[in-house]
Design a protein around this nucleic acid. Structure first.
Lengths: 340, 340
DNA sequence: GTGAAAGCGCTAACAT
DNA sequence: ATGTTAGCGCTTTCAC
């Protein structure tokens, strides 16, 4: 692993270092002859530009930062995450960008990680996943005037770059699907309450109920910790009440898996006793037993467009609409089969 | 987002840039007084060292490279991946390392991505996931003499750093579990055939059968593409033969999900008609219907130790045993309930 | 204990 | 079209 520099190439090609530099960056006025000579020398020596040195002077790094949401949300984010990352990397790859990841165990570390990346000038822009209400990182980045994109949306700032689903509409649509099936008592299983996505989906659910003249029953809105069994008690309470829900809108496929399992353990079958619909359409939702009715939010696409949006901004393109919306569609499966 | 440099700090603190540098790197002989002055100046200006400049001279980047396996393996790797990444980032975070990801659509791009990172001196070491038999990237890295660690193992080089399960033993153990349940006709669903992990698990399966005096039936060893339904035909063929398998060892939980689904569609129930066991113990395997018997391979731990192993190597520690083995354990669930 | 100076590998005026 | 020069922000001898 030799360390061949631009000077070595210059020497071998019999030109000056700056000429080599020009060849690298495809400078227009460079004679075909020398270009060829230099290319050959680079090839012969196995030259690759030192990216640190390039960045130091050019002030850009061809790198995007991504902070992994901290563990509190791990279950919520889990299978979604690798798919969205695939989409991100796919576009980044096209544009020769890499993605620098950092993790954090709590909001404080999260800020630190971002600060280190941004002020350490390691990245050109940053991708924020799962933004919260009044998200401190968003505020910080705004303050730094550092380019970033949200996978999700900001509730406070509508001029920030973001790629999102219309989660209110999505929740509204999927809830209406249940209503059309004849359900009148519909519960909701929420995600972490400070995530914007949780708030939006809850709102869409409520909107559909209200429009249909159905009651919004606060006791039927439960936390996502059913999966851990913490809310098992709450669930049995609800299900053993005189008039239990006949359906649930669940904020995430993984949570839906858990819920189906908990219901089963409590003696309730899906969809015979209770219907389940959820969000994301992760691969496994189709392979669930029963297969889960869900909202396909285009996870891969979401990741892909997020990076595209950010890179466009970085290359100085005029962004007509900062808020991009990725369309969703309902995938109707067995878990919400029509009531007889 | 001002760009405050070491000079600015030096000026404000009334010292030379080199002194500031010494404070940053905790140089021993520096008077407490100046140290304090400099620290205050850094604080006041919001100084953060430019990591590119640091790297350029110090020749290390505090960054590890990771190449996402290309899409062919996406199904195999999917839910496993985010968990292993969490483990990697957790340890990296402790040691103030970041992880630089790059993706590739094919083996050629994979090599390119690695070359760009390595020769571009962007990273100090590299993590390779899911190594193959005679893996070209391993050969390349060996040739460059560049530090790397395998999540898995090399079949050819036993001195390379690696963190792995004993997959042969794991497959042997889980197959024996089925044999103890009274199964005599046991099939196998494989992963991508050139992955070392696939080869090892197949070997362990065969070993258990042979030792028990049971037949290894080549027709019962099928590819992982059952999930896509491509091998659906093969599966029904097998199941409709006069003496079909009564159990399957499946190489991956996700594939097991798919298999259970396919079997169900073909009229076979798990575990009444056929038992299923698999590997990885992803979160959802417990929430499957039925819950899946699987080998817990300690995914998070695997990621954590992989990075630990590599960072130790990078910091010049003497590595006593280059090949680390993470213990596995069987998680017995409903999908392999005893035959009556 | 601290400063001055050189240089890491590269790019970008400014010359010619 | 190409070479010369001066940095980018930092670390690290080498002086004192």
């Amino acid at each position: 692993m030799s360390s061949v520099t631009i000077k070595d190439v210059a020497r071998l090609a019999g030109v000056s270092p700056s000429t080599v530099s020009r060849v690298i960056s495809n400078h227009p006025k460079i004679s075909p002859a020398t270009k060829k000579k230099v290319r050959e020398a680079m090839e012969a020596l196995g030259y690759h530009p030192n990216i640190m040195a390039q960045s130091l002077v050019s002030k850009n790094t061809q790198t995007l930062g991504l902070v992994l949401p901290h563990s509190a949300e791990k279950i919520f984010v889990n299978p979604f995450f690798s798919e969205v990352l695939r989409g991100m990397l796919a576009y980044a790859n096209i544009k020769q960008y890499d993605i620098l990841m950092s993790s954090a165990n709590n909001p404080k570390e999260e800020i630190e990680a971002v600060t280190r990346m941004v002020l350490g000038r390691r990245i050109d822009g940053i991708i924020l996943m799962a933004p919260r209400q009044k998200d401190p990182i968003v505020e910080k980045l705004l303050e730094y005037q550092f380019p970033f994109v949200l996978l999700g949306r900001s509730m406070e700032h509508d001029h920030v770059l973001s790629v999102n689903n219309d989660n209110i509409k999505a929740a509204y649509d999927i809830t209406n699907h249940l209503i059309k099936q004849g359900h009148k008592r519909i519960g909701f299983v929420s995600g972490p309450p400070d995530l914007v996505v949780s708030i939006d989906r809850l709102e869409g659910y409520k909107k559909a109920l209200l429009e249909a003249g159905l009651p919004v029953h606060p006791d039927w809105i439960i936390g996502e910790d059913v999966l851990q069994g913490n809310a098992f008690h709450a669930l049995t309470m609800i299900m053993n009440s005189p008039e239990p829900p006949t359906a649930f809108v669940v904020t995430d496929d993984v949570v839906a898996f858990g819920l189906i399992r908990e219901l089963y353990a409590a003696g309730f079958h899906v969809p015979q006793d209770v219907s389940i619909v959820s969000f994301n359409n992760i691969v496994l939702s189709e392979l669930s037993n029963p297969p889960i009715t869900t909202v396909d939010i285009g996870i891969y696409h979401l990741g892909y467009l997020t990076v595209q949006h950010l890179i466009r901004k970085l290359s100085g393109e005029e962004i007509e609409k900062p808020q991009m919306i990725v369309p969703h569609r309902l995938i109707i499966r067995e878990s919400s089969m029509k009531l007889q």
